[in-house]
Structure formats: C-alpha cells, structure tokens
C-alpha cells in the first residue's frame, strides 16, 4: 500500500470495532484448557520433590533444574547439534530444490514435484522410521549390498548418522514448502536489476535473492529445528542407546524412573530452547511482510 493503513491493519480495525474478537473465543478456550493450564501444571511440578513410588510432594526445590544443567548438559548438547546439523542439511538440499520447483515453466511439472515432496506424509511417520531401520540395520539393505560385493558390513543403525539421516528424511518437506512459497513469489527482475548494476551471479544471489527469500528460509529452519530438538521416535528407533536426546530423556524420566518433577524440569528446559528459536524467528523471519 502506498498510503494509509495496510489492508491487514484496516481489516483488523474494522473487525475489532464489530466485536470480531469473539471469533477467537473457541480457540482461546481450547488453548487455556489444554495448553496454558497443563503447562502451568508442568511448571509447578518441576519445582516440587519426588516422594516414594513417584509421589509428587513438597518441599519446593530447584534441584531438578540444577541436575539438568549439571548432569544432562551432554544430552542438551547432543540434541542441539543433531538438530542444527539436520537443519543445515535440510537447508542445503531444500533451498535449491524449492527454487528448482518454483522456476519450472510447466504448472504440471511444478505440481507433480511438489506432490512428490509431500508424498512421504501419506505414510505414518512411525512406519517410515521402521522402514529406515530395515535399510540401515546390520542385515539391512545397504549392508547386504556391501556384503554382496564382498565388503565388511558397516555400523549404520544406532549412530548419530542414522538419527540425522532419519530426521532429514522426515523433516525435509517442512524446509522445502516455506522456501518454495518465498521462491515462487520471487521476481527474477530483481536479478536483472542486480546484474544491471554490476553484480555477478554470486553477488546477485547473496545480496538480493537470498535476503528476499530469507523469511521462507527462517520459517523452514524453525519448522525443522524445533521438532528435531524434541524428537523421540527417530532418536529411539535409529539412535538407540548411543544417541541420547532430550525427547528420550523426558520419556525416561516420566515412564521408567517415574520422576515427574525432574521430567517436568527437563521439559521446561526444552521449552526454553524452543523459545530461543522462536524469538529468533520473530526477530528475523517476519521482515518484509
């Protein structure tokens, strides 16, 4: 909009004056009942003590948080680098892929390639992860092939490599789709303008194309990074005991140890990490909208 309020803002003002906030009531009630109250409950529990047979009791204590930062730092670290590595690999694969799809002249080719990107969602995530297991296992597809050629079988399953592979496989569409949305909106006249002003391809990309698609990149990174940080199934099935991540740690605290306060504390720390990522998103992902 050249002048005056943006359309979005004008809509908001008009809706507000007509009591449009009432439209949000079902959502707000839902969030309060099933998100805010349970969250406050978890927060409260994280400061209480564990009694005999898993009973939650007083006194109030900071011990669980202290323990998270003393004992579980390696777990936080593993979760973080696995998530960062997964995000980076997804970005390196997803960015060119999204541009490839968005620049296809034929709408049919665009739709089919997008469909292929989304296709894995049609199968249950758990099933897909088990399938990955059978591929990577000691007697799996890859090793059978290697042994067939006369080589020694490799240890692929239950390694960080397997976890990252599984996560990239699972979350790549979340990277491709928002970047595709940004790439599709991108007008290549800006590349012409950059060339015209003396920028070669490399500089045109870094000074014009990348910054203009950055909102899509940041959205994609958040959509991959956040679920990776809390992943449980992939870490459990492909990482086993060798890759201990936060999701598995929380599960162990609640199910095996029945230590609800400590599990709650680890959950709150995970939320803190996610919050940092979201602050980053609000700060850098929402510009130019």
């Amino acid at each position: 909009m050249a002048a005056g309020m943006s359309l979005r803002r004008r809509k908001a003002v008009e809706a507000g004056s007509k009591g449009g906030w009432r439209l949000a009531t079902p959502g707000v009630v839902w969030l309060i009942l099933f998100f805010v109250i349970p969250l406050l409950f978890v927060l409260g529990v994280s400061f209480l003590s564990r009694g005999a047979r898993g009973v939650i009791e007083l006194p109030i204590t900071l011990d669980h948080y202290a323990r998270v930062f003393q004992v579980y730092v390696p777990v936080l670290w593993t979760s973080t680098w696995v998530s960062v590595l997964t995000t980076v690999i997804c970005l390196l694969i997803g960015y060119p892929l999204a541009f490839f799809i968005s620049t296809q002249k034929s709408a049919a080719v665009r739709n089919i390639t997008l469909f292929l990107v989304i296709l894995p969602f049609w199968t249950n995530f758990l099933v897909r992860t088990y399938a990955m297991q059978t591929i990577l296992a000691r007697e799996g597809l890859i090793n059978e092939f290697i042994v067939g050629l006369g080589g020694e079988p490799l240890t692929l399953l239950y390694t960080p490599f397997a976890v990252v592979l599984g996560l990239v496989y699972g979350y790549l569409p979340f990277m491709v789709l928002p970047i595709y949305a940004a790439a599709e909106r991108f007008d290549f006249k800006f590349v012409s303008a950059a060339h015209d002003l003396g920028a070669n391809d490399w500089r045109a990309f870094w000074r014009v194309v990348f910054p203009m698609t950055l909102p899509g990149v940041v959205a994609g990174c958040i959509l991959v990074f956040v679920p990776c940080l809390g992943t449980y199934i992939t870490a459990e099935l492909l990482g086993g005991e060798s890759v201990l991540m936060i999701g598995k740690l929380i599960n162990d605290q609640f199910i095996s140890d029945r230590n609800f306060p400590r599990g709650s504390a680890v959950s709150m720390v995970l939320m803190g990490l996610v919050l940092i990522a979201l602050i980053f998103y609000v700060r850098y992902g929402n510009r130019e909208r």
Partner: peptide, 20 residues
C-alpha cells in the same frame, strides 16, 4: 559481455527497486 560488465544502466518499467 555480460550485463554486469556493460557500460549501460537501466531504469526498469516497474523500477525493480530492491524491497529489502
């Protein structure tokens, strides 16, 4: 000679100003 090495500059029809 690629466009970025030509001694010419262009004012585009819809200006193509970099929005960011």
């Amino acid at each position: 000679v690629p466009p970025f090495h030509r001694p010419v500059n262009t004012v585009f029809q819809d200006y193509a100003l970099f929005p960011h």
